[in-house]
Simulated scan of single mutants.
Amino acid sequence: MPRVGLTSTRLATAGAEVADAMGFDAVTVSRVARHVGVKPASLYSHLTGSDDLRTKVCLLALSEMAEGAADALAGRAGREALAAYAESFRSYARRHPGRYEASHRRLDPATAEASDGRRHTDLAVTILRGYAVPESEHVHAVRLLGSSIHGFVSLEAAGGFSHSAPDAEASWTRAIDALDHVLRGWPAP
């Protein structure tokens, strides 16, 4: 019988808390069981193991980030939308470093299709429409946005920009300006 108060959602949240405090690699059934004050066996009514738990943390992070990005985009277009969208991920990574790392977990195709990952793509496409990027080019432009934004955020989180001047903030602004410029002049297919 499942322990009262333990749910799959509660365990995903506990796993996310562990990830933020100790890193995503620290998310295990035994560590999360200690975090919620139960024996590891109590979690198996809700999980199949640590891999399942990490997937649940990934799905939670994708959902939280999609909500944040949607809120950031509301009522904005063009560079303003691009900057708000990008900053939503950057600030999420700063607040929740373990969850952000979890969001990059490779998911099986069925899980990925059911996740909020598709919503991330749809939000990026919303930005592209404000730039009049042709629909036939959306996949390429979405990939450019994702790799640029998440590449910068991941390198910054790893301390990759802390060793030289100017500070990362100046480079972040320049990166957003460059993306804005590229999207405004997107080359014809």
Rank of each mutant, 00 (worst) to 15 (best):
R3I: 08
L6G: 03
L6T: 00
T7F: 00
S8E: 08
L11V: 00
T13M: 04
A14C: 07
E17S: 14
V18Q: 11
A19C: 09
A19R: 07
A21D: 14
A21L: 13
F24Q: 07
D25N: 11
A26Y: 01
A26T: 04
S30V: 09
R34T: 08
H35G: 05
G37N: 08
G37R: 08
K39M: 06
P40L: 10
S42T: 08
L47A: 12
G49S: 04
S50I: 09
D51M: 07
R54T: 03
T55I: 13
T55V: 15
A61K: 05
A66G: 09
G68S: 06
A69F: 03
D71L: 07
G75W: 02
R76S: 06
G78P: 04
G78E: 03
L82R: 05
A83L: 07
A84L: 06
A84W: 01
E87R: 13
R90H: 11
R94E: 14
H96V: 00
R99H: 03
R99W: 01
R99A: 13
Y100T: 00
Y100H: 12
E101C: 04
A102W: 00
A102G: 10
S103K: 00
S103Q: 10
A110D: 13
A110V: 09
A112C: 02
D116S: 15
G117N: 12
R119W: 02
H120L: 12
D122R: 13
A124D: 07
V125Q: 05
T126I: 01
G130Q: 09
A132V: 02
V133G: 09
V133H: 05
V133E: 06
P134E: 12
P134G: 06
E135P: 01
V139P: 04
R143M: 14
R143I: 03
L145F: 00
G146A: 10
S147C: 12
I149T: 02
H150M: 12
G151Q: 08
F152Q: 08
A157R: 12
A158Q: 12
G160R: 03
S162P: 02
A165R: 14
E169G: 15
S171N: 07
W172S: 12
R174P: 05
A175V: 13
D177M: 12
A178G: 11
A178I: 04
D180K: 04
H181C: 14
V182Y: 15
V182T: 15
L183T: 08
W186E: 13
P187D: 10
A188T: 11
